[in-house]
Design a protein around this nucleic acid. Structure first.
Length: 621
DNA sequence: TAAGTCACG
DNA sequence: ACGTACGTGACTTAT
Protein backbone atom coordinates (compact mmCIF):
# COMPACT_ATOMS: atom_id res chain seq x y z
CA UNK A 1 0.00 0.00 0.00
CA UNK A 2 1.20 3.42 -0.83
CA UNK A 3 -0.56 6.31 0.77
CA UNK A 4 0.89 9.46 -0.64
CA UNK A 5 0.58 12.01 2.07
CA UNK A 6 0.81 14.92 -0.22
CA UNK A 7 0.20 17.79 2.06
CA UNK A 8 2.31 16.34 4.79
CA UNK A 9 5.17 15.61 2.43
CA UNK A 10 4.97 19.12 1.11
CA UNK A 11 4.87 20.43 4.61
CA UNK A 12 7.86 18.45 5.73
CA UNK A 13 9.79 19.83 2.81
CA UNK A 14 8.29 23.20 3.30
CA UNK A 15 9.09 23.45 6.92
CA UNK A 16 12.64 24.13 5.93
CA UNK A 17 11.60 26.54 3.22
CA UNK A 18 8.65 28.55 4.42
CA UNK A 19 6.08 28.79 7.24
CA UNK A 20 3.31 26.21 7.24
CA UNK A 21 0.52 28.63 7.03
CA UNK A 22 1.82 30.22 3.89
CA UNK A 23 2.29 26.91 2.14
CA UNK A 24 -1.10 25.50 3.06
CA UNK A 25 -2.80 28.61 1.89
CA UNK A 26 -0.96 28.11 -1.34
CA UNK A 27 -2.08 24.48 -1.53
CA UNK A 28 -5.67 25.59 -1.40
CA UNK A 29 -5.36 27.89 -4.36
CA UNK A 30 -7.73 26.78 -7.13
CA UNK A 31 -4.85 26.36 -9.58
CA UNK A 32 -3.28 23.73 -7.40
CA UNK A 33 -6.58 22.02 -6.71
CA UNK A 34 -6.95 21.43 -10.40
CA UNK A 35 -3.77 19.38 -10.46
CA UNK A 36 -4.48 15.65 -10.47
CA UNK A 37 -3.03 14.97 -7.04
CA UNK A 38 -5.39 17.19 -5.11
CA UNK A 39 -7.91 17.71 -7.84
CA UNK A 40 -11.13 17.79 -5.93
CA UNK A 41 -12.51 20.38 -8.31
CA UNK A 42 -12.28 18.07 -11.28
CA UNK A 43 -12.68 14.70 -9.59
CA UNK A 44 -15.70 12.57 -10.52
CA UNK A 45 -15.80 11.51 -6.89
CA UNK A 46 -13.86 12.65 -3.84
CA UNK A 47 -13.59 10.79 -0.58
CA UNK A 48 -13.97 13.03 2.45
CA UNK A 49 -13.33 12.44 6.13
CA UNK A 50 -13.27 14.79 9.09
CA UNK A 51 -11.35 14.43 12.34
CA UNK A 52 -12.96 16.03 15.35
CA UNK A 53 -12.92 16.70 19.07
CA UNK A 54 -15.97 14.54 19.90
CA UNK A 55 -18.13 11.61 18.82
CA UNK A 56 -21.22 13.67 19.69
CA UNK A 57 -22.16 15.02 16.27
CA UNK A 58 -23.83 18.19 17.56
CA UNK A 59 -20.86 19.32 19.60
CA UNK A 60 -17.89 18.01 17.63
CA UNK A 61 -15.44 20.62 16.35
CA UNK A 62 -13.13 20.14 13.40
CA UNK A 63 -9.53 19.10 13.99
CA UNK A 64 -8.63 18.23 10.41
CA UNK A 65 -9.96 17.17 7.02
CA UNK A 66 -8.71 14.42 4.73
CA UNK A 67 -9.43 14.02 1.05
CA UNK A 68 -8.73 11.43 -1.60
CA UNK A 69 -9.51 11.47 -5.30
CA UNK A 70 -7.16 8.78 -6.58
CA UNK A 71 -6.43 5.27 -5.41
CA UNK A 72 -3.55 5.11 -2.93
CA UNK A 73 -3.36 8.87 -2.60
CA UNK A 74 -4.78 11.12 0.04
CA UNK A 75 -4.03 14.33 1.82
CA UNK A 76 -4.69 15.57 5.32
CA UNK A 77 -5.28 19.19 6.18
CA UNK A 78 -4.50 19.76 9.87
CA UNK A 79 -6.55 22.59 11.27
CA UNK A 80 -6.79 22.56 15.04
CA UNK A 81 -4.20 20.27 16.57
CA UNK A 82 -3.18 21.67 19.92
CA UNK A 83 -0.47 20.02 21.95
CA UNK A 84 2.80 21.26 23.35
CA UNK A 85 5.01 21.96 20.34
CA UNK A 86 2.21 21.69 17.78
CA UNK A 87 3.17 23.59 14.65
CA UNK A 88 1.18 26.56 13.59
CA UNK A 89 -1.68 25.57 11.32
CA UNK A 90 -3.85 27.33 8.80
CA UNK A 91 -6.70 29.27 10.31
CA UNK A 92 -9.76 27.03 10.44
CA UNK A 93 -12.00 29.78 9.16
CA UNK A 94 -9.78 30.63 6.23
CA UNK A 95 -9.50 27.02 5.11
CA UNK A 96 -13.25 26.48 5.40
CA UNK A 97 -13.91 29.60 3.37
CA UNK A 98 -11.59 28.29 0.65
CA UNK A 99 -13.30 24.90 0.71
CA UNK A 100 -16.86 26.18 1.21
CA UNK A 101 -17.82 26.41 -2.49
CA UNK A 102 -16.68 22.85 -3.10
CA UNK A 103 -18.16 21.42 0.13
CA UNK A 104 -21.51 23.08 -0.54
CA UNK A 105 -21.65 22.17 -4.21
CA UNK A 106 -24.09 19.42 -5.28
CA UNK A 107 -22.06 19.15 -8.49
CA UNK A 108 -18.93 17.93 -6.74
CA UNK A 109 -19.76 14.34 -5.79
CA UNK A 110 -18.52 13.01 -2.47
CA UNK A 111 -18.19 9.64 -0.79
CA UNK A 112 -17.47 8.99 2.86
CA UNK A 113 -17.94 6.52 5.68
CA UNK A 114 -21.00 7.84 7.54
CA UNK A 115 -21.17 11.29 5.94
CA UNK A 116 -24.19 12.16 8.12
CA UNK A 117 -21.68 12.64 10.91
CA UNK A 118 -19.29 14.75 8.82
CA UNK A 119 -22.25 16.83 7.67
CA UNK A 120 -23.04 17.61 11.32
CA UNK A 121 -19.45 18.55 12.05
CA UNK A 122 -19.34 20.88 9.07
CA UNK A 123 -22.75 22.29 9.98
CA UNK A 124 -21.31 23.09 13.42
CA UNK A 125 -18.94 25.40 11.51
CA UNK A 126 -21.67 26.88 9.31
CA UNK A 127 -21.02 24.72 6.24
CA UNK A 128 -23.93 22.92 4.53
CA UNK A 129 -22.40 19.80 2.99
CA UNK A 130 -23.88 18.95 -0.39
CA UNK A 131 -23.14 16.40 -3.08
CA UNK A 132 -23.33 13.31 -0.89
CA UNK A 133 -23.32 10.77 -3.69
CA UNK A 134 -22.21 7.66 -1.86
CA UNK A 135 -21.59 6.34 1.63
CA UNK A 136 -19.60 3.18 2.26
CA UNK A 137 -21.33 2.66 5.60
CA UNK A 138 -24.70 2.48 3.86
CA UNK A 139 -23.27 0.28 1.10
CA UNK A 140 -21.98 -2.19 3.66
CA UNK A 141 -25.30 -2.12 5.53
CA UNK A 142 -27.32 -2.80 2.40
CA UNK A 143 -25.01 -5.67 1.46
CA UNK A 144 -24.65 -7.23 4.92
CA UNK A 145 -26.80 -5.62 7.60
CA UNK A 146 -25.94 -8.39 10.06
CA UNK A 147 -22.20 -7.71 10.11
CA UNK A 148 -20.04 -4.93 11.53
CA UNK A 149 -19.45 -1.82 9.45
CA UNK A 150 -16.57 -0.03 11.14
CA UNK A 151 -13.77 0.96 8.82
CA UNK A 152 -11.24 -1.48 10.26
CA UNK A 153 -13.59 -4.42 9.74
CA UNK A 154 -14.54 -3.30 6.22
CA UNK A 155 -10.91 -2.78 5.18
CA UNK A 156 -9.99 -6.21 6.44
CA UNK A 157 -13.04 -7.95 4.96
CA UNK A 158 -13.17 -6.32 1.55
CA UNK A 159 -9.64 -5.12 0.87
CA UNK A 160 -7.61 -7.56 2.95
CA UNK A 161 -5.94 -4.59 4.58
CA UNK A 162 -5.06 -3.94 8.20
CA UNK A 163 -5.42 -0.25 8.83
CA UNK A 164 -4.28 2.00 11.61
CA UNK A 165 -7.07 1.97 14.19
CA UNK A 166 -8.52 4.86 16.17
CA UNK A 167 -7.44 3.05 19.32
CA UNK A 168 -3.86 2.78 18.09
CA UNK A 169 -3.83 6.51 17.48
CA UNK A 170 -5.78 7.84 20.47
CA UNK A 171 -5.54 5.01 23.00
CA UNK A 172 -8.51 3.81 25.00
CA UNK A 173 -10.17 4.05 28.38
CA UNK A 174 -8.81 6.57 30.85
CA UNK A 175 -5.65 7.14 28.82
CA UNK A 176 -7.49 8.08 25.64
CA UNK A 177 -6.56 11.47 24.19
CA UNK A 178 -8.54 13.82 22.00
CA UNK A 179 -7.74 13.80 18.30
CA UNK A 180 -6.49 17.37 18.59
CA UNK A 181 -3.73 16.05 20.85
CA UNK A 182 -2.52 13.56 18.24
CA UNK A 183 0.64 14.63 16.45
CA UNK A 184 0.07 15.92 12.95
CA UNK A 185 2.38 13.24 11.54
CA UNK A 186 0.42 10.46 13.22
CA UNK A 187 -2.93 12.09 12.44
CA UNK A 188 -1.97 12.33 8.80
CA UNK A 189 -1.12 8.64 8.57
CA UNK A 190 -4.44 7.74 10.17
CA UNK A 191 -6.79 10.21 8.57
CA UNK A 192 -5.33 10.15 5.07
CA UNK A 193 -5.50 6.37 5.19
CA UNK A 194 -9.19 6.57 6.17
CA UNK A 195 -10.00 8.78 3.20
CA UNK A 196 -8.02 6.56 0.88
CA UNK A 197 -9.51 3.32 2.24
CA UNK A 198 -12.99 4.80 1.93
CA UNK A 199 -12.42 5.44 -1.75
CA UNK A 200 -11.08 1.91 -2.21
CA UNK A 201 -14.05 0.44 -0.33
CA UNK A 202 -16.43 2.36 -2.53
CA UNK A 203 -14.79 0.89 -5.60
CA UNK A 204 -15.40 -2.62 -4.25
CA UNK A 205 -18.80 -2.21 -2.57
CA UNK A 206 -20.67 -0.03 -5.03
CA UNK A 207 -20.42 -2.53 -7.92
CA UNK A 208 -21.73 -5.23 -5.60
CA UNK A 209 -24.71 -3.09 -4.61
CA UNK A 210 -25.28 -1.99 -8.20
CA UNK A 211 -25.49 -5.47 -9.66
CA UNK A 212 -28.76 -6.33 -7.88
CA UNK A 213 -31.73 -4.14 -8.74
CA UNK A 214 -33.28 -4.58 -5.29
CA UNK A 215 -30.13 -3.66 -3.39
CA UNK A 216 -29.53 -0.75 -5.71
CA UNK A 217 -33.03 0.54 -5.11
CA UNK A 218 -32.72 0.20 -1.33
CA UNK A 219 -29.37 1.99 -1.40
CA UNK A 220 -30.04 4.74 -3.92
CA UNK A 221 -33.73 5.38 -3.44
CA UNK A 222 -34.05 4.69 0.28
CA UNK A 223 -30.87 4.86 2.34
CA UNK A 224 -28.92 7.61 0.58
CA UNK A 225 -31.83 10.07 0.40
CA UNK A 226 -32.90 9.08 3.92
CA UNK A 227 -29.52 9.99 5.39
CA UNK A 228 -30.07 13.67 4.72
CA UNK A 229 -33.59 13.50 6.11
CA UNK A 230 -32.17 11.98 9.30
CA UNK A 231 -29.48 14.63 9.38
CA UNK A 232 -32.13 17.34 9.30
CA UNK A 233 -34.22 15.62 12.00
CA UNK A 234 -31.23 15.25 14.30
CA UNK A 235 -30.29 18.87 13.79
CA UNK A 236 -33.80 20.16 14.33
CA UNK A 237 -34.15 18.27 17.61
CA UNK A 238 -37.23 18.10 19.78
CA UNK A 239 -38.45 20.57 22.37
CA UNK A 240 -38.68 19.00 25.81
CA UNK A 241 -40.06 20.84 28.86
CA UNK A 242 -37.51 20.44 31.66
CA UNK A 243 -39.72 22.07 34.30
CA UNK A 244 -42.48 19.51 33.82
CA UNK A 245 -40.07 16.57 33.95
CA UNK A 246 -38.29 17.90 37.03
CA UNK A 247 -41.61 18.29 38.84
CA UNK A 248 -42.54 14.73 37.87
CA UNK A 249 -39.15 13.54 39.07
CA UNK A 250 -39.67 15.06 42.50
CA UNK A 251 -43.12 13.51 42.81
CA UNK A 252 -41.85 10.11 41.71
CA UNK A 253 -38.95 10.39 44.14
CA UNK A 254 -41.34 10.74 47.05
CA UNK A 255 -43.46 7.79 45.97
CA UNK A 256 -40.35 5.69 45.38
CA UNK A 257 -39.08 6.45 48.89
CA UNK A 258 -42.41 5.39 50.38
CA UNK A 259 -42.42 2.15 48.37
CA UNK A 260 -38.88 1.46 49.49
CA UNK A 261 -39.81 1.88 53.16
CA UNK A 262 -42.81 -0.37 52.63
CA UNK A 263 -40.64 -3.02 50.97
CA UNK A 264 -38.12 -2.96 53.81
CA UNK A 265 -41.01 -3.30 56.25
CA UNK A 266 -42.44 -6.31 54.41
CA UNK A 267 -39.00 -7.90 54.13
CA UNK A 268 -38.19 -7.23 57.78
CA UNK A 269 -34.83 -5.73 56.81
CA UNK A 270 -33.34 -3.07 54.55
CA UNK A 271 -32.08 -4.08 51.11
CA UNK A 272 -31.30 -2.46 47.77
CA UNK A 273 -34.43 -2.58 45.61
CA UNK A 274 -32.34 -1.84 42.56
CA UNK A 275 -30.45 -5.09 42.93
CA UNK A 276 -32.09 -8.20 41.42
CA UNK A 277 -29.56 -10.24 43.37
CA UNK A 278 -30.66 -8.82 46.71
CA UNK A 279 -34.34 -9.09 45.76
CA UNK A 280 -33.77 -12.75 44.96
CA UNK A 281 -32.09 -13.34 48.32
CA UNK A 282 -35.05 -11.77 50.14
CA UNK A 283 -37.84 -13.40 48.12
CA UNK A 284 -36.45 -16.86 47.54
CA UNK A 285 -34.05 -17.05 50.50
CA UNK A 286 -35.40 -15.27 53.53
CA UNK A 287 -39.12 -15.43 52.67
CA UNK A 288 -38.92 -18.81 50.91
CA UNK A 289 -41.17 -17.89 47.97
CA UNK A 290 -41.23 -20.39 45.09
CA UNK A 291 -38.70 -19.80 42.29
CA UNK A 292 -40.64 -19.35 39.04
CA UNK A 293 -37.86 -19.35 36.48
CA UNK A 294 -34.10 -18.95 36.18
CA UNK A 295 -32.13 -16.31 34.31
CA UNK A 296 -29.66 -17.16 31.55
CA UNK A 297 -26.89 -17.50 34.15
CA UNK A 298 -28.94 -19.78 36.41
CA UNK A 299 -29.93 -17.29 39.11
CA UNK A 300 -33.60 -17.15 40.14
CA UNK A 301 -35.33 -14.54 38.00
CA UNK A 302 -37.12 -11.58 39.54
CA UNK A 303 -38.43 -10.07 36.32
CA UNK A 304 -41.88 -8.56 35.87
CA UNK A 305 -43.45 -11.83 34.81
CA UNK A 306 -42.18 -13.59 37.94
CA UNK A 307 -43.15 -10.81 40.34
CA UNK A 308 -46.61 -10.62 38.78
CA UNK A 309 -47.19 -14.32 39.43
CA UNK A 310 -45.90 -14.09 43.01
CA UNK A 311 -48.02 -11.00 43.65
CA UNK A 312 -51.14 -13.17 43.53
CA UNK A 313 -50.11 -14.78 46.83
CA UNK A 314 -47.70 -12.38 48.57
CA UNK A 315 -47.62 -8.61 49.22
CA UNK A 316 -43.92 -7.77 48.68
CA UNK A 317 -43.72 -8.52 44.93
CA UNK A 318 -46.45 -5.94 44.19
CA UNK A 319 -44.48 -3.28 46.02
CA UNK A 320 -41.36 -4.24 44.08
CA UNK A 321 -43.24 -4.02 40.79
CA UNK A 322 -44.49 -0.53 41.55
CA UNK A 323 -41.05 0.53 42.72
CA UNK A 324 -39.45 -0.81 39.55
CA UNK A 325 -41.93 0.94 37.29
CA UNK A 326 -41.54 4.32 38.97
CA UNK A 327 -37.74 4.06 39.27
CA UNK A 328 -37.52 3.36 35.55
CA UNK A 329 -39.58 6.43 34.72
CA UNK A 330 -37.63 8.65 37.07
CA UNK A 331 -34.08 7.71 36.14
CA UNK A 332 -34.39 7.00 32.42
CA UNK A 333 -36.79 9.76 31.47
CA UNK A 334 -37.52 12.43 34.12
CA UNK A 335 -33.90 12.80 35.21
CA UNK A 336 -32.02 12.03 32.00
CA UNK A 337 -33.99 13.92 29.36
CA UNK A 338 -33.62 17.40 30.92
CA UNK A 339 -29.89 16.75 31.23
CA UNK A 340 -29.73 16.12 27.50
CA UNK A 341 -31.25 19.42 26.45
CA UNK A 342 -28.59 21.36 24.59
CA UNK A 343 -28.08 24.82 25.96
CA UNK A 344 -27.56 26.39 22.54
CA UNK A 345 -30.77 25.03 20.97
CA UNK A 346 -32.90 24.35 24.05
CA UNK A 347 -33.83 21.00 22.51
CA UNK A 348 -32.79 17.35 22.63
CA UNK A 349 -31.01 15.96 19.59
CA UNK A 350 -31.08 12.19 19.20
CA UNK A 351 -28.84 10.30 16.80
CA UNK A 352 -30.57 7.91 14.43
CA UNK A 353 -28.52 4.81 13.76
CA UNK A 354 -29.11 3.94 10.12
CA UNK A 355 -26.97 0.80 10.13
CA UNK A 356 -27.67 -0.80 13.52
CA UNK A 357 -30.80 -2.94 13.20
CA UNK A 358 -30.37 -6.05 11.04
CA UNK A 359 -33.95 -5.81 9.75
CA UNK A 360 -33.60 -2.37 8.21
CA UNK A 361 -35.21 -0.46 11.06
CA UNK A 362 -33.68 2.68 12.48
CA UNK A 363 -32.32 2.89 16.00
CA UNK A 364 -32.34 6.01 18.18
CA UNK A 365 -29.74 6.79 20.80
CA UNK A 366 -28.34 9.53 23.05
CA UNK A 367 -31.14 9.83 23.96
CA UNK A 368 -33.30 7.03 22.66
CA UNK A 369 -36.53 8.72 21.58
CA UNK A 370 -38.04 5.49 20.29
CA UNK A 371 -38.83 4.05 23.72
CA UNK A 372 -40.62 6.93 25.42
CA UNK A 373 -43.37 5.39 27.63
CA UNK A 374 -46.95 5.11 26.36
CA UNK A 375 -48.44 1.88 27.73
CA UNK A 376 -49.35 3.11 31.22
CA UNK A 377 -51.01 6.33 32.39
CA UNK A 378 -47.99 7.07 34.59
CA UNK A 379 -45.64 6.63 31.68
CA UNK A 380 -47.68 8.68 29.27
CA UNK A 381 -47.11 11.75 31.43
CA UNK A 382 -43.53 11.75 30.09
CA UNK A 383 -44.98 12.44 26.65
CA UNK A 384 -46.65 15.59 27.93
CA UNK A 385 -43.15 17.04 28.20
CA UNK A 386 -42.54 16.65 24.45
CA UNK A 387 -44.05 19.96 23.54
CA UNK A 388 -44.63 22.22 20.56
CA UNK A 389 -43.19 25.76 20.64
CA UNK A 390 -45.70 28.60 20.81
CA UNK A 391 -47.63 28.92 17.58
CA UNK A 392 -47.19 25.30 16.58
CA UNK A 393 -48.53 21.81 17.19
CA UNK A 394 -47.14 18.33 17.52
CA UNK A 395 -48.60 16.09 14.82
CA UNK A 396 -48.29 12.33 14.99
CA UNK A 397 -49.03 10.09 11.99
CA UNK A 398 -48.79 6.35 12.42
CA UNK A 399 -49.38 3.39 10.14
CA UNK A 400 -52.22 1.22 11.33
CA UNK A 401 -51.42 -2.52 11.63
CA UNK A 402 -48.57 -2.12 9.18
CA UNK A 403 -46.88 -5.46 9.78
CA UNK A 404 -50.10 -7.45 9.64
CA UNK A 405 -50.94 -5.75 6.37
CA UNK A 406 -47.53 -6.73 5.07
CA UNK A 407 -48.15 -10.30 6.22
CA UNK A 408 -51.36 -10.26 4.21
CA UNK A 409 -49.45 -8.98 1.19
CA UNK A 410 -46.57 -11.43 1.46
CA UNK A 411 -48.72 -14.46 2.22
CA UNK A 412 -51.38 -13.58 -0.35
CA UNK A 413 -53.87 -15.12 2.08
CA UNK A 414 -57.39 -14.55 0.80
CA UNK A 415 -59.03 -14.23 4.22
CA UNK A 416 -56.52 -11.76 5.57
CA UNK A 417 -56.52 -9.72 2.36
CA UNK A 418 -60.29 -9.55 2.47
CA UNK A 419 -60.36 -8.39 6.09
CA UNK A 420 -58.08 -5.47 5.25
CA UNK A 421 -59.82 -4.71 1.96
CA UNK A 422 -63.10 -4.36 3.83
CA UNK A 423 -61.50 -2.19 6.46
CA UNK A 424 -62.36 -4.67 9.21
CA UNK A 425 -60.87 -4.76 12.69
CA UNK A 426 -58.39 -7.52 11.91
CA UNK A 427 -58.05 -8.84 15.48
CA UNK A 428 -61.82 -9.09 15.70
CA UNK A 429 -61.94 -10.85 12.34
CA UNK A 430 -59.26 -13.27 13.50
CA UNK A 431 -61.17 -13.95 16.72
CA UNK A 432 -64.32 -14.69 14.73
CA UNK A 433 -62.43 -17.21 12.60
CA UNK A 434 -60.51 -18.89 15.42
CA UNK A 435 -63.44 -19.08 17.83
CA UNK A 436 -66.03 -19.81 15.20
CA UNK A 437 -68.37 -16.98 16.08
CA UNK A 438 -69.87 -14.08 14.15
CA UNK A 439 -67.82 -10.89 14.00
CA UNK A 440 -70.38 -9.06 16.11
CA UNK A 441 -70.34 -11.83 18.71
CA UNK A 442 -66.62 -11.62 19.48
CA UNK A 443 -66.01 -10.93 23.18
CA UNK A 444 -63.37 -8.56 24.47
CA UNK A 445 -61.42 -11.53 25.77
CA UNK A 446 -61.58 -13.36 22.45
CA UNK A 447 -60.33 -10.28 20.64
CA UNK A 448 -57.45 -9.94 23.11
CA UNK A 449 -56.51 -13.57 22.52
CA UNK A 450 -56.66 -13.13 18.75
CA UNK A 451 -54.42 -10.08 18.99
CA UNK A 452 -51.80 -12.11 20.88
CA UNK A 453 -52.08 -14.84 18.24
CA UNK A 454 -51.63 -12.36 15.41
CA UNK A 455 -48.54 -10.82 16.98
CA UNK A 456 -47.15 -14.19 17.98
CA UNK A 457 -47.44 -15.47 14.43
CA UNK A 458 -45.41 -12.60 13.10
CA UNK A 459 -42.65 -13.54 15.54
CA UNK A 460 -42.67 -17.21 14.54
CA UNK A 461 -44.10 -18.21 17.90
CA UNK A 462 -44.57 -21.78 19.11
CA UNK A 463 -47.52 -23.26 21.01
CA UNK A 464 -45.40 -23.04 24.13
CA UNK A 465 -44.79 -19.33 23.65
CA UNK A 466 -48.46 -18.64 23.01
CA UNK A 467 -49.43 -20.67 26.07
CA UNK A 468 -46.98 -18.78 28.28
CA UNK A 469 -48.13 -15.44 26.98
CA UNK A 470 -51.84 -16.16 27.37
CA UNK A 471 -51.43 -18.08 30.60
CA UNK A 472 -53.21 -21.10 29.15
CA UNK A 473 -52.28 -24.74 28.59
CA UNK A 474 -50.08 -25.79 25.72
CA UNK A 475 -52.78 -28.03 24.24
CA UNK A 476 -55.24 -25.18 24.17
CA UNK A 477 -52.62 -22.94 22.54
CA UNK A 478 -51.87 -25.58 19.95
CA UNK A 479 -55.59 -25.75 19.21
CA UNK A 480 -55.74 -22.01 18.53
CA UNK A 481 -52.75 -22.15 16.21
CA UNK A 482 -54.19 -25.11 14.30
CA UNK A 483 -57.51 -23.34 13.89
CA UNK A 484 -55.73 -20.18 12.76
CA UNK A 485 -53.75 -21.99 10.08
CA UNK A 486 -56.87 -23.84 8.93
CA UNK A 487 -58.68 -20.52 8.49
CA UNK A 488 -55.72 -18.68 6.98
CA UNK A 489 -53.97 -21.34 4.87
CA UNK A 490 -52.04 -18.71 2.93
CA UNK A 491 -50.29 -17.66 6.11
CA UNK A 492 -49.36 -21.27 6.92
CA UNK A 493 -47.96 -21.67 3.40
CA UNK A 494 -46.02 -18.40 3.71
CA UNK A 495 -44.38 -19.52 6.96
CA UNK A 496 -43.28 -22.80 5.37
CA UNK A 497 -42.01 -21.34 2.13
CA UNK A 498 -40.18 -18.53 3.92
CA UNK A 499 -38.35 -21.00 6.16
CA UNK A 500 -37.45 -23.14 3.16
CA UNK A 501 -36.30 -20.16 1.10
CA UNK A 502 -34.16 -18.88 3.95
CA UNK A 503 -32.47 -22.26 4.24
CA UNK A 504 -31.84 -22.46 0.51
CA UNK A 505 -30.46 -18.97 -0.11
CA UNK A 506 -29.26 -17.99 3.36
CA UNK A 507 -31.26 -14.79 3.29
CA UNK A 508 -34.80 -13.46 2.98
CA UNK A 509 -35.94 -10.28 1.26
CA UNK A 510 -38.30 -7.40 1.88
CA UNK A 511 -40.85 -6.36 -0.74
CA UNK A 512 -38.32 -3.80 -2.00
CA UNK A 513 -35.43 -6.23 -2.23
CA UNK A 514 -33.56 -5.50 0.97
CA UNK A 515 -31.64 -8.67 1.83
CA UNK A 516 -31.64 -9.94 5.39
CA UNK A 517 -29.05 -12.62 5.96
CA UNK A 518 -29.49 -15.47 8.44
CA UNK A 519 -26.05 -16.96 9.09
CA UNK A 520 -27.42 -19.54 11.53
CA UNK A 521 -30.33 -20.77 9.43
CA UNK A 522 -28.55 -24.09 8.74
CA UNK A 523 -26.70 -24.32 12.04
CA UNK A 524 -26.37 -27.80 13.58
CA UNK A 525 -27.16 -26.11 16.91
CA UNK A 526 -30.92 -26.63 17.33
CA UNK A 527 -31.87 -23.61 19.42
CA UNK A 528 -29.73 -21.32 17.28
CA UNK A 529 -31.21 -22.66 14.09
CA UNK A 530 -34.74 -22.30 15.42
CA UNK A 531 -33.96 -18.76 16.48
CA UNK A 532 -32.84 -18.02 12.92
CA UNK A 533 -36.05 -19.61 11.58
CA UNK A 534 -38.15 -17.28 13.71
CA UNK A 535 -36.07 -14.32 12.59
CA UNK A 536 -36.59 -15.45 8.98
CA UNK A 537 -40.36 -15.34 9.46
CA UNK A 538 -40.30 -11.92 11.08
CA UNK A 539 -37.61 -10.15 9.05
CA UNK A 540 -39.53 -9.63 5.78
CA UNK A 541 -42.43 -8.07 7.68
CA UNK A 542 -40.41 -5.87 10.01
CA UNK A 543 -38.03 -5.03 7.16
CA UNK A 544 -40.74 -4.13 4.66
CA UNK A 545 -42.39 -1.91 7.26
CA UNK A 546 -39.03 -0.21 7.73
CA UNK A 547 -38.68 0.28 3.96
CA UNK A 548 -42.16 1.79 3.72
CA UNK A 549 -41.75 4.33 6.50
CA UNK A 550 -38.31 5.29 5.21
CA UNK A 551 -39.83 5.96 1.79
CA UNK A 552 -42.55 7.96 3.53
CA UNK A 553 -39.93 10.03 5.34
CA UNK A 554 -38.18 10.83 2.08
CA UNK A 555 -41.50 11.64 0.41
CA UNK A 556 -42.78 13.89 3.19
CA UNK A 557 -39.44 15.69 3.49
CA UNK A 558 -39.44 16.29 -0.26
CA UNK A 559 -43.02 17.59 -0.17
CA UNK A 560 -42.25 19.96 2.72
CA UNK A 561 -39.21 21.26 0.85
CA UNK A 562 -41.00 21.68 -2.46
CA UNK A 563 -43.86 23.53 -0.80
CA UNK A 564 -41.46 25.66 1.28
CA UNK A 565 -43.34 24.73 4.45
CA UNK A 566 -42.08 25.45 7.96
CA UNK A 567 -43.25 22.07 9.21
CA UNK A 568 -40.39 19.88 10.41
CA UNK A 569 -40.17 16.11 10.75
CA UNK A 570 -38.78 15.64 14.27
CA UNK A 571 -39.09 11.95 15.19
CA UNK A 572 -39.60 8.46 13.78
CA UNK A 573 -40.77 5.58 15.98
CA UNK A 574 -40.85 2.60 13.57
CA UNK A 575 -44.45 3.02 12.40
CA UNK A 576 -44.97 6.62 13.45
CA UNK A 577 -43.76 9.98 12.16
CA UNK A 578 -43.86 13.02 14.42
CA UNK A 579 -43.89 16.57 13.07
CA UNK A 580 -43.65 20.03 14.53
CA UNK A 581 -46.19 22.07 12.60
CA UNK A 582 -46.79 25.82 12.56
CA UNK A 583 -50.48 26.42 13.31
CA UNK A 584 -50.93 27.99 9.87
CA UNK A 585 -49.90 24.71 8.21
CA UNK A 586 -51.88 22.35 10.40
CA UNK A 587 -54.70 21.64 7.98
CA UNK A 588 -52.43 21.16 4.97
CA UNK A 589 -50.27 18.70 6.89
CA UNK A 590 -53.26 16.76 8.23
CA UNK A 591 -54.64 16.48 4.75
CA UNK A 592 -51.49 15.57 2.86
CA UNK A 593 -49.22 13.51 5.13
CA UNK A 594 -51.50 10.44 5.49
CA UNK A 595 -51.93 10.41 1.73
CA UNK A 596 -48.17 10.54 1.14
CA UNK A 597 -47.58 7.79 3.68
CA UNK A 598 -50.27 5.52 2.27
CA UNK A 599 -49.14 5.79 -1.32
CA UNK A 600 -45.38 5.29 -1.15
CA UNK A 601 -46.08 1.81 -2.52
CA UNK A 602 -49.07 -0.15 -3.68
CA UNK A 603 -49.38 -3.49 -1.95
CA UNK A 604 -52.20 -6.01 -2.26
CA UNK A 605 -53.76 -4.35 0.80
CA UNK A 606 -54.49 -0.68 1.36
CA UNK A 607 -52.24 1.11 3.84
CA UNK A 608 -53.94 3.15 6.55
CA UNK A 609 -52.60 6.05 8.62
CA UNK A 610 -54.00 7.59 11.81
CA UNK A 611 -53.11 11.20 12.41
CA UNK A 612 -53.59 13.51 15.38
CA UNK A 613 -52.47 16.92 16.62
CA UNK A 614 -51.96 18.52 20.01
CA UNK A 615 -49.82 20.82 22.10
CA UNK A 616 -47.70 17.87 23.16
CA UNK A 617 -46.89 14.36 21.98
CA UNK A 618 -49.41 12.75 24.33
CA UNK A 619 -52.25 14.90 23.01
CA UNK A 620 -51.24 14.20 19.42
CA UNK A 621 -52.33 10.56 19.75
C1' DT B 1 -17.69 -5.01 31.29
C1' DA B 2 -21.56 -8.32 31.96
C1' DA B 3 -25.98 -9.40 33.67
C1' DG B 4 -30.60 -8.35 34.63
C1' DT B 5 -34.34 -5.66 33.79
C1' DC B 6 -37.60 -2.87 31.21
C1' DA B 7 -38.93 1.12 28.01
C1' DC B 8 -40.68 1.06 22.87
C1' DG B 9 -42.61 -0.90 17.98
C1' DA C 1 -35.32 -34.00 26.24
C1' DC C 2 -34.51 -29.16 25.08
C1' DG C 3 -35.77 -24.47 24.45
C1' DT C 4 -39.35 -21.83 23.45
C1' DA C 5 -41.81 -14.46 20.17
C1' DC C 6 -38.99 -10.47 16.42
C1' DG C 7 -36.14 -5.99 16.70
C1' DT C 8 -33.87 -2.17 19.57
C1' DG C 9 -31.21 1.24 23.87
C1' DA C 10 -30.36 2.50 28.60
C1' DC C 11 -30.20 2.17 33.42
C1' DT C 12 -28.47 -0.10 37.80
C1' DT C 13 -25.74 -3.30 40.21
C1' DA C 14 -21.94 -6.20 40.68
C1' DT C 15 -17.48 -7.90 39.33
Amino acid sequence: MRVVLEVLADLRMARRLQPWAQLLEHALQPELLRRPRVAIEAAPLTSLDTETTSLDPMQARLVGISLSVTEHEACYIPLAHRYPGAPEQLGLERVLEKLRPWLQSPRHPKVGQNLKYDAHVLANHGIALEGIEHDTLLQSYVLESHRGHDMEALAERHLGRRTLTYEQVCGKGARQIGFDEVSIERATEYSAEDAEVTLALHQVLWPRVREHDGLRFVYQSIEIPLSRVLFAMERTGVRVDPVLLTAQSRELGERIAALEAQAHQLAGQPFNLGSPKQIGEILFGKLGLPVQKKTASGAPSTDEDVLERLAADFPLPRTLLEHRALSKLKSTYCDKLPAMIRQDTGRVHTTYGQTIAVTGRLASSDPNLQNIPIRTAEGRRIREAFVAPAGSHIVSADYSQIELRIMAHLSDDAGLLEAFAKGQDVHRATAAEVFGVRVDEVSADQRRTAKVINFGLMYGMSAFGLATNLGIGRDEARGYIERYFARYPGVARYMDTTRALAKRQGYVETVFGRRLWLPEINSPNGPRRQGAERAAINAPMQGTAADLIKLAMVATAEWLRRESLGTRLIMQVHDELVFEVPDSELERVRARVPDLMCHVASLKVPLAVDIGAGRNWDQAH
